[in-house]
């Protein structure tokens, strides 16, 4: 008798705990996720052990050879450094700039909305378009920057042809394009800070710097973390603008890891090697994403 009553009971608890709902609603999403995310990652991991041109039979197993070549590749080292430089510039230049602008423009002053729009506009632009526009700006013969410099009596500037300056140009465009987005994040964050705190601080005689240091900054902490997180992931994914602005050149000095993957993996029909780059990138991205959440975002809930 006990046997016959047990199943309905467990079924009921199953339903109550949402298990049935999960059973019905999970498969479509899970299938899509498996087919378009898990399988390709697995395939890339598999291809990474082969020397494969994408056409022939997958039969030239080389073990970790692709990874060995990748770690010994000077262009890849440079690409990795370039990714780190994006993060460094994001933290050292873009973040303070965005924060400063946000503090200036958060108050409803005349023209602040117009400035917000103006600074946010580049972010709406596609990376490819931004790259092409700045390619013209940096052009040594016809570009605005070189022309201005010549008007001041200098020689023509071929910024994108100089291996020491080309990547600096890329970084400039990154800050130009993305600081507006981060500024908007901070403005949103500022609006969540209780106005009364500022009033109370003013009454207590706190200087503007003290108000910024002890009210604004702590209040913006979650947004700053989010902004840094976006900068990190943005750096790891950075690709389109490299293609349209420098094509990775001159002398392969301005690649990021993703553009390296495209030019040296797909462009050279070395799908095995490219897959190895992809796997490394995936591991880096996953580490950053989970590590960041674990170590820096966790006290948000406290």
């Amino acid at each position: 008798m006990a046997d016959t009553t047990a199943p309905p009971q467990s079924q009921a608890s199953y339903v109550r705990s949402g298990g049935l709902t999960a059973l019905i609603f999970l498969p479509p999403a899970l299938t899509l996720f498996t087919v378009f995310v898990i399988l390709p990652i697995g395939e890339a991991g598999w291809y990474g052990f082969y020397n494969w041109n994408g056409l022939a039979a997958l039969d030239n197993f080389v073990g970790l050879e692709n990874y060995r070549q990748l770690l010994a590749n000077k262009t890849f080292h440079q690409a990795f450094i370039n990714n780190l430089l994006i993060i460094a510039v994001s933290l050292a230049v873009q973040l303070p700039l965005a924060l400063g602008m946000a503090v200036l423009l958060a108050d409803r002053l005349i023209g602040s909305t117009a400035f917000r729009m103006l600074f946010f506009l580049p972010y709406i632009l596609a990376d490819v378009a931004a790259g092409l526009i700045w390619r013209f700006m940096f052009d040594g013969d016809y570009g605005l920057i070189s022309q201005t410099w010549q008007a001041l009596g200098g020689d023509p500037l071929y910024i994108l042809a100089d291996r020491h300056w080309a990547y600096a140009a890329v970084l400039t465009v990154i800050v130009w394009k993305y600081f507006g987005f981060h500024m908007m994040l901070y403005i949103a964050g500022l609006q969540n800070i209780d106005r009364n705190l500022y009033e109370a601080a003013s009454i207590d005689g706190a200087s503007p710097w003290q108000r910024f240091r002890f009210i604004t900054l702590p209040g913006l902490k979650p947004m700053i973390k989010l902004s840094v997180f976006f900068s990190l992931l943005g750096s790891l994914q950075f690709f389109d603008m490299i293609v349209s602005l420098t094509g990775g050149g001159p002398l392969n000095s301005s690649h990021t890891m993703v553009s390296f993957l495209y030019y040296f993996g797909i462009g050279r029909m070395r799908i095995g090697f490219g897959s190895a780059v992809g796997v490394l990138l995936f591991i880096l991205c996953a580490t950053v994403a989970f590590g960041y959440k674990r170590w820096l975002m966790r006290d948000d809930n406290d």
Binding site: G140, D141, P156, Y158, I159, L160, A161, D162, R163, A166, T246, G247, G249, P250, L251
Partner: peptide
């Protein structure tokens, strides 16, 4: 020409 490294 000047800037040949950056000319497409």
């Amino acid at each position: 020409q000047d800037g040949w490294l950056g000319t497409k």
